[in-house]
């Protein structure tokens, strides 16, 4: 069992095989052995979420996403990767979409934030939410709040003339095409792959008939 590794262990091996210390503790932990370290001081932060002023005292490591989900119990914004790779946590900050997992809550003092809960409720849906239901633009529903936040932002970005990777003439006005929508939505992964239906929903809201 104590086979020698095939080659010298790298830094990663050294890290995992670190120095020995005291024996494993009992559970729950007995505070008697060594004094616990103090928690880092909380940082006050104030921002507006869905039109409501919120004040929090947060561990500076708390992401904006976790502030919303764990501290304000606005769980509509989802954690799919916590690394800005999937888009499920997309929210609007100061009118622009961002991955809320990639930014710390304390960086947003004074900001105006909109989450999926700020759009509409069952029985009183935002047009984009209604279009997602109509076109079945989701399946498991986990990426859906992020897809909807991005969908709304994408139409704004096209309207504002913001170019994308597929815009042929970056100095001109981007057209509302299927390719533009798909490229701009590509930061929002849907593993159920309702993509074809999501594009139909966005096109419907935008009043674009021949987008395919």
């Amino acid at each position: 069992m104590n086979d020698k590794p095939a080659f010298t262990l790298s830094r990663r091996g050294a890290l995992v095989g670190g120095a020995a210390a005291a024996a494993a503790g009992a559970v729950p932990i007995d505070a008697g052995a060594a004094p616990a370290q103090p928690a880092p001081p909380a940082v006050p932060v104030r921002f507006t979420v869905n039109g409501k002023a919120r004040a929090l005292e947060l561990d500076p490591r708390v992401t904006l996403l976790d502030a919303l989900r764990e501290h304000l119990e606005l769980t509509g914004s989802k954690k799919g990767c916590d690394h800005g790779q999937c888009g499920a946590c997309t929210v609007m900050v100061e009118g622009k979409r961002i991955n809320s997992c990639l930014t710390l809550a304390v960086m947003h003092d004074g900001d105006d934030i909109t989450t999926i809960e700020g759009l509409g409720r069952p029985g009183d849906l935002h047009p984009m939410q209604a279009a997602f239901v109509k076109h079945d633009g989701f399946q498991c529903g986990y990426c859906t709040p992020g897809q909807i936040m991005s969908s709304i932002a994408v139409l704004e970005e096209i309207k504002d003339g913001v170019p994308s990777y597929v815009t042929a003439d970056v100095a001109g006005k981007p057209a509302l095409t299927g390719e533009e929508l798909r490229e701009r939505m590509s930061g929002n992964i849907c593993r159920c792959a309702a993509y074809s239906n999501i594009i139909a929903a966005i096109a419907d809201v935008a009043g674009a008939k021949d987008v395919a």
Binding site: M1, R12, G13, L15, V16, G18, A20, A21, A22, A23, A24, G25, A26, V27, P28, I29, A33, A34, P35, A36, Q37, P38, A39, P40
Partner: peptide
């Protein structure tokens, strides 16, 4: 951190003293 082998020892002392820690469960307990 390894794919195959045996756990020789688990040292939880530092983790136990870290802020806010309530419990640690390993195969030993």
């Amino acid at each position: 951190a390894v794919a195959k082998g045996r756990i020789a020892r688990i040292d939880t002392a530092d983790a136990e003293r870290a802020p806010g820690v309530i419990a640690i469960v390993t195969r030993e307990n």
